[in-house]
């Protein structure tokens, strides 16, 4: 019986968007998506509009990551902290369904962040830099495609980081540790790639950290350790499945005590 599922997602959205916190985060995101092109314009950078958007997006990615992780870590752990989990879980619904509705709400939030960045960032980049050439990559068309592909791969990064936060916060039933660790993953994944170099260790190519950021494939079809894009996507899918199963176990099978 999945007829109640849209209702559950509506509930989770209500709990996200009825909080002032969420609107402050979105306002900050919109502000920087607009401010970056404006600042680049003021400094008189000689760039084409799509390069400006790429720069903007590369910066706002970190904002989106922080906000997404906060939402993903709070959506389960917050219910435990406030004690509302008890009233939530005594309904005639399987716990797995409630958990999935929460994850869908997180995905929708990530989508909203990406759309806001794209709409505001592209609009302002075009406004300030329309028709300007100069420092930038090749023709206008390929520049646009590359820029949008980067937005896509960065959004996939957000999903993976959010899933780590979602899993850890459900396991620990506490948001702060989950926020810390998942942001650490985002900021240190390149370091892991450097230390556990797949050119040196064959098994290192199965490590999640190397595949979170797929943007390398925009330039080259060869990934870390000589693997292909489809291999990276397979790794991401496999880890996602395992993480979701762990999260489901932690949420659906464990007792809810004081």
């Amino acid at each position: 019986m999945w007829s109640s599922f849209p209702n559950l997602v509506a509930n989770e959205n209500m709990k996200i968007y009825f909080r002032v916190r969420t609107w402050i985060m979105l306002a900050i995101l919109v502000f920087f998506s607009a401010a970056m092109p404006a600042m680049l314009y003021v400094t008189g950078a000689a760039m084409d509009a799509w390069t400006v958007f790429t720069w903007t997006e590369s910066f706002t990615l970190y904002l989106s990551a922080i906000f997404t992780v906060v939402i993903a870590a709070d959506i389960v752990a917050g219910e435990f902290a406030a004690g509302t989990i008890k009233l939530l879980l005594i309904r005639p619904l399987r716990r797995g369904k409630i958990l999935m509705s929460k994850w869908v709400a997180v995905l929708l939030f990530i989508l909203l962040c990406a759309v806001l960045t794209a709409v505001v960032g592209i609009a302002l980049s075009q406004l300030f830099f329309a028709g300007t050439g100069g420092l930038g990559s090749g023709s206008g068309a390929s520049s646009m495609v590359n820029s949008l592909l980067l937005l896509l791969t960065d959004t996939i990064q957000l999903v993976m980081i959010a899933l780590v936060a979602f899993m850890l916060s459900t396991l620990f039933r506490s948001g702060s540790l989950a926020i810390g660790i998942s942001l650490l993953v985002l900021f240190t994944k390149d370091l892991f790639g450097f230390m556990l170099n797949p050119d040196k260790y064959v098994w290192a190519k199965y490590i999640l950290f190397l595949h979170i950021d797929l943007s390398g494939y925009i330039q080259s079809p060869i990934g870390p350790g000589g693997v292909s894009l489809s291999f990276s996507i397979f790794i991401l899918a496999a880890y996602s499945l395992v993480f979701l199963l762990i999260t489901w176990w932690a949420f659906a099978k464990r007792d809810v005590a004081a």
Partner: peptide, 23 residues
Amino acid sequence: VENPEMYKYLSGYNNLKHFARMM
């Protein structure tokens, strides 16, 4: 169960609507 902990940042009505949607 124990204290009636509701979503503090929602109105009483939205809390009820929240639980109504689950049944």
